[in-house]
Simulated assay, not measured.
Amino acid sequence: MLAYTTYSEAGGVGKTTLASNLADAHSQHNRDVLAIDLDPQNGSLTYLLGVNAHRDDGDADNIARHLIDRPKGDFEDLIHETQYGFDLVPSHNMLENLADLLGRASSMAEDLGEEFERHDQLRQVLLEAGIPDQYDTIVVDPPATAGPHLYNAIGATRSLVIPLEPTGKGIQSIEGLRDVVHGFEKTVGVTVGVLAVVPNGVGRTTDQQRYLKRISELGYDAPVAIGERASLFEGCWSEQTTAFAYVDEYRSRKRDHEMETLDQLRDLAGHLEEVRA
Rank of each mutant, 00 (worst) to 15 (best):
S20K: 11
E165K: 15
L268Q: 05
D69C: 07
L265G: 04
N93G: 01
N97F: 07
L18C: 11
G235V: 05
A156I: 09
L212W: 10
L102A: 00
L2C: 01
Q264I: 02
G203R: 11
P90V: 00
R253G: 00
G227K: 11
A23K: 00
V198T: 09
N62I: 03
A269P: 10
H92R: 06
P143Y: 03
S91H: 06
K15L: 05
T191R: 08
V139F: 06
V194G: 05
S106T: 14
A144K: 07
P142F: 09
D56R: 08
A25P: 08
E274I: 11
T261K: 01
Y246R: 07
L127G: 00
M108R: 13
Y151R: 09
T187K: 15
D111N: 13
P90G: 02
I154Y: 12
T137H: 10
R118M: 12
L164T: 13
V197R: 13
Q28G: 03
E165S: 14
L18F: 05
A109C: 09
H26G: 07
I36E: 02
A3S: 14
E165R: 15
L218S: 00
E258H: 15
D32E: 13
L45E: 04
Q83W: 12
L101M: 14
E258F: 13
I154G: 06
Q209H: 08
M259N: 14
V89N: 04
V180T: 15
M1R: 01
V161W: 12
L18P: 00
G85F: 01
P40D: 06
N152H: 09
T167D: 04
E249S: 01
D61N: 12
N52G: 01
R229E: 05
G235R: 00
T17Y: 10
G168Y: 04
F233M: 13
A243L: 07
G170P: 02
E234C: 04
E260Y: 10
L48H: 01
V181A: 13
E96R: 12
R266V: 13
D39I: 07
E96D: 13
V275D: 03
S91G: 09
G85T: 03
F75I: 01
A10P: 01
Q83F: 13
H119F: 14
P163V: 10
R70V: 03
G201H: 12
E249N: 10
D32H: 02
H29F: 08
L164N: 15
D39L: 04
L112W: 12
Y246N: 08
S252H: 02
G183Y: 10
A243Q: 05
